[in-house]
Design a binder for these strands. Structure first.
Lengths: 174, 174
DNA sequence: CACAATTGCATGAAAAGTTATGAATCAGGA
DNA sequence: TCCTGATTCATAACTTTTCATGCAATTGTG
């Protein structure tokens, strides 16, 4: 057992240090939506990432497995979208997961260009406890909120996501 | 000038494809806060990242420069916190920025372990237009919201960030 | 003051990610 | 059918990030 890093703040299994305090007041970034979203994602997930890593699973691998527990048999590119990876990166993560026997690639018989990704029983056995850890973490993190507040936040985020996707779809001007 | 990828949806200067639609309804990840935050950050920033890259600046470099435009002369570790990098990664980004003459490292005279990072005039000249691009992007992205809605979202995010930092600080229950 | 512990940063080696491209397959006309 | 263009995924070459560690400076302790 490693000697337990002395007095580290939590959420740094990757040596990542979480900000003690954000940027100074009045700074550009402090009011910049893209920064707030990135910071929120970063600090909110720091602890769960640390816990996942402690199990020996990488974060990229965890994200893919979590998606596959939800919906199995996606094509590579759709899984990449869902896991927020570009396609070549996902291909390499899949290589690693396949090497561990956690996923399996199967050719699509209808469209033989396509490869469908399936989680194996071993993969599911690996992933399910991680999902439990994630659920427990979420419960801890949101313990200070009332249920309707949580719902409000999630609705707002989904709305922002929907609008962002809409913006990104519009024809590249010119 | 490169032949401009055909018909790409916006926000993929890095070959990154932005989801057409999130995960399926009822999926675990669809309701999982960490995922929503990551997805929101991802899709919201896709387009601005694409624009920044088109200028020839990398995203990591942009994040550091944006921070330095806000507050110059931070130490390496504090700048790393602000830019959401771990320390070795920031050190290497700084190497690249220094090689381009955009930043400068100066030893702290009080504490000679410390290195203070300063943006150079060339760095500022490089960064300021990028900040303008970012501001324009933010205005576009949030054009559909009323000002008080935007404020509400930002307040909620800052609150979530504050609470997350607080959670991360508590002694590791063990 | 001497010495152990800590802090701040850099760095080498290994791992992972990105970019550009290619091979295979499919789809839509002429 | 044959050809052109698009789609899906993998991969090679290159770049970046990570992990572990080392060195130097500072702090705390007796």
């Amino acid at each position: 057992m490693p000697p337990k890093r002395a007095r580290a703040r939590r959420g740094d299994a990757d040596g990542m240090t979480v900000p003690l305090q954000g940027p100074p007041e009045g700074a550009f970034v402090a009011g910049y939506m893209a920064y707030l979203l990135a910071q929120a994602s970063h600090v909110y997930s720091a602890e769960i990432h640390a816990r996942i890593k402690q199990t020996g699973c990488g974060i990229a691998e965890w994200r893919v497995l979590a998606c596959l527990v939800d919906v199995d048999g996606l094509s590579v590119s759709r899984l990449a979208e869902m896991a927020l990876f570009n396609q070549p990166r996902l291909s390499k993560v899949l290589d690693r997961l396949a090497a561990q026997g956690l996923i399996e690639r199967r050719g699509d018989t209808d469209d033989r260009r396509r490869v469908r990704v399936h989680i194996t029983p071993a993969g599911r056995a690996h992933a399910v406890p991680l999902v439990e850890i994630a659920k427990a973490h979420e419960a801890e993190m949101l313990a200070g909120y009332r249920p309707e507040e949580i719902e409000t936040i999630k609705v707002m985020l989904r709305d922002l996501i929907r609008r962002s996707l809409a913006s990104n779809e519009v024809s590249p001007e010119e």
